[in-house]
Amino acid sequence: MAIEIRNLKKVYKMGVERVHALRGLDLRIEDNEFVAIMGASGSGKSTLLNMIGCLDRPTSGRYLLSGKPTHKMRSGQLSRIRNEEIGFVFQSFELLPRATALKNVMLPLVYSRQHMFTARKRAKEALERVGLGDRMRHKPNQLSGGQRQRVAIARALVNGPSIILADEPTGNLDSTTTQEIIALFKELHREGQTIIIVTHEESVAGHAERIVRLCDGLVQSDLPAAKDPLHREYRRAVAAAAQVAAHEIHADKPGIDAEPKTLPEPVDNGSPTPTTRKITPSKEVTP
């Protein structure tokens, strides 16, 4: 089991006021799942993300990451968990502007105990994995948005994490590039990677197997994407819009939205494809 969260609470103190960001949330995410976490702002989405990413500690409750009780850990241990168990992908990529793609991907390995001597090789492999084998020496400003996010994904992959945690990974990308990145995530997922995407775009969430919706610090709904009523509604709306658009195109007018063309195929059911292959090169190399 990748993640087991039990009765997780987080209270922030804002002056004298106490803000309950999470009010006893329960969540289980199995290995090899592809989960989208959705929710309005203030729903506790960001707080949950910080908890899962071990960037913050809960006020109370339990959080087991790959069986490790992170709620009991000190900050130094949490640093190590972040380094070894979690691959972060951010909305604004967060690449070091002056470092090459390769150096950027090597960053987590700088702080790693395991892969000191093979860092360069592993970083190259990760870049090749995301299809940027020919862009290793490029700096972020020489890369397109999609390529930058690929570098970020390669960086997330490089240390063989248990989960990839993507926070609005397509928020800064156009729709075509969004599709590319989503396709990449799906591919990684097929290879056995656990992926958690935090997003507010239904179109992105639709690619996940499972959609977890948060509201007021609790899980509001947790259903396979195909069965999620809100998502189904969205899908119907998009289909309707596509029909309208088709008419308009017929009348020699430009399409209202690129969305329909890139509409994802509905996922049949919520069960993940059982895979035994995992892309964690950490198991191969033990220096």
Binding site: G53, L55, S75, G76, S79, R80, I81, R82, N83, E84, F88, F90, E94, L96, L107, P108, V110, Y111, S112, R155
Partner: peptide, 16 residues
């Protein structure tokens, strides 16, 4: 600051 945040997220300990 953001770079520091990133490095911390990537597992850099405060000492580092």
């Amino acid at each position: 600051t953001r770079e520091i945040g990133l490095r911390k997220a990537m597992g850099a300990k405060p000492m580092i």
